[in-house]
């Protein structure tokens, strides 16, 4: 089961359909079970049977998830692959000691892959949809995998399959989620 975490301002919000449903749909299309849970409902560890976790994005004005880092105490010790999308990347960064700063992009942006990684293999450049007002300074030790002219676009934990991406893969880049899921299987 792939745990899709809704990082929106309240459980069952109007942003749920916009940010969690499209990611869960990609997961299901890839043949996996997707379970959407609000981040306030996880507790101290992820549910048994979780094969991977995807932290979904939020509405542009919604940054409340950064105010409650204690709700992500499970993340540093998570025994499964983790992918953070936009807000999710900010959470991964913050939990591991990274910083967020002002940095906004809206719309299609050119992304350059700057470090080889299975997530982006075969891609030097691609275009992606952006929707963020905060950018991440990668945590100490994390690898920067990709960047746009504005900010870091993808990071990875040095030893584990814990990724953050700033762009929204449901728009024209479903392959990123599909590759992440394949990594979890292997």
């Amino acid at each position: 089961m792939i745990l899709c975490l809704d990082l929106s301002y309240r459980p069952g919000s109007l942003a749920l359909e916009e940010f969690a449903y499209p990611i869960a749909a990609i997961v299901r299309k890839a043949g996996e079970e997707a379970k959407i849970v609000h981040y306030t409902g996880v507790g101290s560890s992820i549910p048994p049977g979780t094969d991977a976790v995807i932290l979904c994005g939020t509405a542009l004005k919604d940054t409340g998830y950064l105010d409650r880092p204690e709700l992500f105490c499970w993340l540093p010790e998570a025994p499964v692959p983790v992918l953070g999308i936009c807000a999710g990347m900010q959470v991964i960064s913050a939990v591991h000691g990274g910083e967020t700063e002002a940095g906004y992009e809206i719309g299609i942006t050119d992304i350059e892959v700057i470090r080889p990684d299975p997530l982006f293999s075969g891609k030097d450049r691609f275009q992606a949809y952006e929707l963020h007002t905060l950018a991440c300074m990668p945590p100490p030790g994390f690898l920067t995998l990709a960047a746009s002219d504005t900010c870091v676009q993808a990071i990875r934990h040095p030893k584990k399959a814990v990724y953050g991406i700033m762009f929204h893969p449901e728009v024209r880049n479903e392959w990123v989620v599909e590759r992440f899921l394949r990594m979890g299987r292997s």
Binding site: P22, A59, D62, G107, T133
Partner: peptide, 28 residues
């Protein structure tokens, strides 16, 4: 699915400090 429409509306909402919701975004 219209990135043209959505990104322009998102931009205007950001400039005006308004929330922006698209509940049908990439729906099934």
């Amino acid at each position: 699915m219209s990135v043209y429409q959505a990104s322009r509306l998102q931009q205007i909402c950001r400039d005006m400090d308004l929330w922006c919701f698209n509940p049908l975004w990439y729906t099934d």
